[in-house]
Design a protein around this nucleic acid. Structure first.
Lengths: 240, 240
DNA sequence: GAGTGGTCTAGACCACCAG
DNA sequence: TGGTGGTCTAGACCACTCC
């Protein structure tokens, strides 16, 4: 693991990248155990402490998890809700009723200018647009509209999204990318006619509009998403 | 720093607690430099690596910050907005217009039952209630209603809040407590007459209701807060 | 050049888990 | 009992900052 003499990145950073690549290539499935710290250290010709630092950071980023005495394991792919939940108002650990996902469509599109700009991409760059509807107990509660750079995620299609069960799971399993939210904006919004129809409410029903910008661990823009939530029965909840 | 033989906590954890205590007691002011890692190690009779681990965690918790080649410094007290901002919609790093703070009141009160329960306190435990109004360019944009356990924060009064410029800054400077948000719920709400009057809007104006539960680094309940935001011009923004 | 944090190594021992 | 992660040490060298 001595790599090039002119290395700019620390060793543990190179190890992180290497492990991310090998996970993305399917070398270890979700919940599979990685080799022990000592085995990895020997394989990569670095000290156990350096492997440890790399693993610790990947645990912090949600890619791995550890159990003392058992080993280090690959974490599940993130859901499209990340650390957020839809939870009954006023409860802290309230059980999550089953949130059903319905893929409305996935097609090539141009993103609105302000979206490209926010993602640091040039104007009119080709994008993939994904729309999803979320139901709680049969009733629509949320509507998603996501844009992803088409060149970076070439081949992404509806079938993959359905198989993996969401955008983030697809990005992780097919492209080895684990999205990290860097900005989330919340405001009250009124719905356009189309959105209102999909959510089965009238256009004068105020909704919670969540705008989210996500990047990869390496920092490249991954997704911009607009989500409308109906919060009469549930609240958009962040847990940490 | 050998401490008791029957130690349950790792050394670096004890060092964290010790440093937190000394910061709370005012040994180092905000932006003041701590002794170097080696000096601390010698003073506490531990290795530099152990001090380093403690410092690294405190940096991660926002208590300290480091500059390579310069030193380790005490971070500023958190604002009542934590990692949140009120920002123009659609901007990522948009400059923050001056948000003016107005303390409406600070008095002893009983918290609603569900608040005590959520904080893990017994019913009807005495609390301190703090109300604040936030203005942007003179216009009211947010209204806060916070509850804190009175026994834990005895002596907290309006004068302190005004001096420190907020609840969180007061907790840190007077009590050495740095609140950490563990739950945040967002929903659309209608305002009661009193809230609407304070925010200078009619009761049929939908507002963004943010409910936040905060604990100390040690995990004790610190604050429950309800915040109403008017999001016509700005969005409630999280940056990470 | 002196002092700081940042990286990396090698080795020791402990706490926890599984067979 | 053997293997895993968790803690702690001691020492080396590098990168950055300031004088």
């Amino acid at each position: 693991m001595t790599s090039n003499k002119l290395r700019r990145q620390p060793l543990y950073e190179q190890i992180k990248q290497l492990l991310l690549r090998r996970i993305a290539e399917g070398e270890w499935q979700e919940h599979a155990a990685l080799p022990s710290e000592w085995e990895l250290a020997e394989e990569l010709s670095v000290s156990q402490g350096t492997v440890r630092k790399a693993l610790t950071e990947l645990v912090g980023e949600g890619v791995l998890y550890r159990h003392q005495g058992r080993g280090t394991f690959v974490a599940e792919a993130a859901s499209d809700w990340g650390e957020a939940r839809l939870q009954t108002i006023g409860t802290r650990a309230g059980r999550q009723e089953a949130l059903m996902q319905e893929l409305l469509g996935c097609w090539k599109a141009n993103a609105p200018e302000e979206v490209s700009e926010l993602m640091g991409l040039r104007r009119l760059v080709p994008m993939i647009r994904v729309r999803q509807l979320w139901r709680l107990g049969g009733q629509p509660v949320a509507l998603d509209d996501a844009y992803l750079p088409a060149e970076r995620f070439e081949g992404l299609e509806a079938r993959w999204l359905r198989q993996a069960g969401g955008v983030y799971a697809t990005l992780q399993r097919r492209f080895g990318v684990r999205p990290k939210t860097v900005m989330e904006q919340m405001r009250v919004a009124t719905l356009a006619r189309e959105e209102a129809q999909l959510l089965l409410v009238t256009t004068d029903t105020p909704a919670l509009a969540v705008t989210r910008l996500s990047v990869s661990i390496e920092g490249e823009p991954v997704e911009w998403r607009m989500r409308y939530c109906l919060t009469q029965q549930v609240a958009y909840t962040h847990l940490r």
